[in-house]
Amino acid sequence: MNQLFEIYETLRHFGFCFNQSDFSVHWLGRSRCYMSYLKRTGADPSLTSMKLLVARLEAEVELAKHSGEEAFYRPMRSALVAARTIHDGVYELKYVPPFYRITAINSS
Protein backbone atom coordinates (compact mmCIF):
# COMPACT_ATOMS: atom_id res chain seq x y z
CA MET A 1 0.00 0.00 0.00
CA ASN A 2 2.77 2.41 -0.91
CA GLN A 3 0.25 4.66 -2.67
CA LEU A 4 -1.75 5.09 0.52
CA PHE A 5 1.39 6.17 2.36
CA GLU A 6 2.18 8.61 -0.46
CA ILE A 7 -1.32 10.08 -0.11
CA TYR A 8 -0.69 10.42 3.62
CA GLU A 9 2.61 12.20 2.96
CA THR A 10 0.93 14.62 0.54
CA LEU A 11 -1.76 15.48 3.06
CA ARG A 12 0.80 15.83 5.85
CA HIS A 13 2.92 18.10 3.67
CA PHE A 14 -0.01 20.47 3.14
CA GLY A 15 -1.00 20.41 6.81
CA PHE A 16 -4.18 18.35 6.52
CA CYS A 17 -2.90 15.84 9.08
CA PHE A 18 -0.01 15.71 11.50
CA ASN A 19 0.81 12.01 11.75
CA GLN A 20 -0.43 8.58 10.70
CA SER A 21 -2.78 8.38 13.68
CA ASP A 22 -4.41 11.65 12.68
CA PHE A 23 -4.70 10.46 9.06
CA SER A 24 -6.22 7.15 10.16
CA VAL A 25 -8.91 8.84 12.25
CA HIS A 26 -9.77 11.93 10.19
CA TRP A 27 -9.22 10.77 6.61
CA LEU A 28 -9.86 7.02 6.78
CA GLY A 29 -12.46 6.98 9.56
CA ARG A 30 -10.65 4.28 11.50
CA SER A 31 -8.78 3.87 14.77
CA ARG A 32 -5.50 5.62 15.49
CA CYS A 33 -3.54 2.44 14.79
CA TYR A 34 -5.09 1.65 11.39
CA MET A 35 -2.15 2.83 9.25
CA SER A 36 0.26 0.92 11.49
CA TYR A 37 -1.90 -2.17 11.10
CA LEU A 38 -1.90 -1.86 7.29
CA LYS A 39 1.85 -1.37 7.23
CA ARG A 40 2.53 -4.27 9.60
CA THR A 41 0.21 -6.80 7.96
CA GLY A 42 0.31 -5.67 4.34
CA ALA A 43 -3.50 -5.85 4.32
CA ASP A 44 -5.57 -3.88 1.85
CA PRO A 45 -7.45 -0.90 3.28
CA SER A 46 -11.19 -1.31 3.69
CA LEU A 47 -13.54 -0.17 0.95
CA THR A 48 -15.32 2.10 3.41
CA SER A 49 -12.08 3.82 4.36
CA MET A 50 -11.09 4.31 0.75
CA LYS A 51 -14.51 5.65 -0.21
CA LEU A 52 -14.33 8.13 2.67
CA LEU A 53 -10.82 9.18 1.63
CA VAL A 54 -11.93 9.67 -1.99
CA ALA A 55 -14.92 11.77 -0.93
CA ARG A 56 -12.82 14.00 1.31
CA LEU A 57 -10.11 14.39 -1.30
CA GLU A 58 -12.69 15.31 -3.95
CA ALA A 59 -13.84 18.21 -1.79
CA GLU A 60 -10.28 19.39 -1.14
CA VAL A 61 -9.30 19.07 -4.81
CA GLU A 62 -12.30 21.18 -5.81
CA LEU A 63 -11.18 23.90 -3.39
CA ALA A 64 -7.59 23.60 -4.64
CA LYS A 65 -8.77 23.90 -8.22
CA HIS A 66 -10.44 27.21 -7.50
CA SER A 67 -7.51 28.51 -5.48
CA GLY A 68 -5.45 28.86 -8.66
CA GLU A 69 -2.32 27.51 -6.97
CA GLU A 70 -0.85 24.82 -9.25
CA ALA A 71 1.72 23.80 -6.63
CA PHE A 72 -1.17 22.86 -4.35
CA TYR A 73 -3.68 21.59 -6.91
CA ARG A 74 -1.48 19.10 -8.78
CA PRO A 75 -0.31 17.02 -5.78
CA MET A 76 -3.82 17.00 -4.34
CA ARG A 77 -5.27 15.89 -7.69
CA SER A 78 -2.63 13.13 -7.90
CA ALA A 79 -3.58 11.99 -4.40
CA LEU A 80 -7.23 11.82 -5.45
CA VAL A 81 -6.42 9.76 -8.56
CA ALA A 82 -4.30 7.39 -6.46
CA ALA A 83 -7.08 7.02 -3.87
CA ARG A 84 -9.61 6.23 -6.59
CA THR A 85 -7.24 3.64 -8.07
CA ILE A 86 -6.74 1.97 -4.69
CA HIS A 87 -10.51 1.95 -4.10
CA ASP A 88 -11.19 0.40 -7.51
CA GLY A 89 -8.48 -2.21 -7.03
CA VAL A 90 -9.70 -3.23 -3.58
CA TYR A 91 -13.27 -3.42 -4.89
CA GLU A 92 -12.22 -5.61 -7.81
CA LEU A 93 -10.19 -7.95 -5.61
CA LYS A 94 -13.22 -8.44 -3.39
CA TYR A 95 -16.11 -8.56 -5.85
CA VAL A 96 -14.94 -9.06 -9.45
CA PRO A 97 -13.95 -12.48 -10.84
CA PRO A 98 -10.22 -12.59 -11.72
CA PHE A 99 -10.83 -12.80 -15.46
CA TYR A 100 -12.66 -9.44 -15.47
CA ARG A 101 -10.34 -7.45 -13.23
CA ILE A 102 -8.87 -4.28 -14.69
CA THR A 103 -7.41 -2.15 -11.90
CA ALA A 104 -7.01 -4.73 -9.12
CA ILE A 105 -3.62 -4.66 -7.50
CA ASN A 106 -1.60 -7.72 -6.66
CA SER A 107 -1.80 -7.99 -2.89
CA SER A 108 1.14 -10.38 -2.59
Rank of each mutant, 00 (worst) to 15 (best):
M1Y: 05
Q3I: 05
E6A: 12
E6W: 10
I7M: 12
Y8H: 13
Y8E: 14
Y8G: 00
E9K: 09
E9W: 04
T10N: 06
T10W: 09
H13F: 15
G15W: 03
F16C: 05
F18R: 14
N19D: 15
Q20E: 03
Q20K: 03
S21R: 02
S21P: 01
S21N: 13
F23S: 09
F23T: 13
H26Y: 13
H26K: 15
W27I: 00
G29E: 13
R30Y: 05
C33V: 01
Y34Q: 01
L38W: 06
L38V: 11
K39A: 14
K39V: 06
R40M: 02
T41M: 05
G42D: 11
G42S: 10
S46M: 01
L47S: 03
T48H: 07
M50D: 03
M50K: 00
K51A: 14
L52R: 04
L53G: 12
L53M: 08
V54Q: 01
V54H: 01
A55Y: 05
E58Q: 15
A59G: 12
A59L: 14
A59N: 10
A59D: 15
E62V: 09
E62Q: 13
K65I: 06
G68F: 12
E69A: 08
E69H: 08
A71W: 00
F72Q: 01
R74T: 15
R74V: 15
R74D: 14
M76Y: 13
M76N: 07
R77E: 14
A79C: 11
V81M: 13
V81F: 10
V81P: 05
V81Y: 10
V81W: 07
R84K: 15
T85G: 13
I86W: 03
I86F: 00
H87R: 15
Y91S: 03
K94L: 05
P98W: 06
Y100K: 03
I102R: 00
I105M: 14
S108R: 11
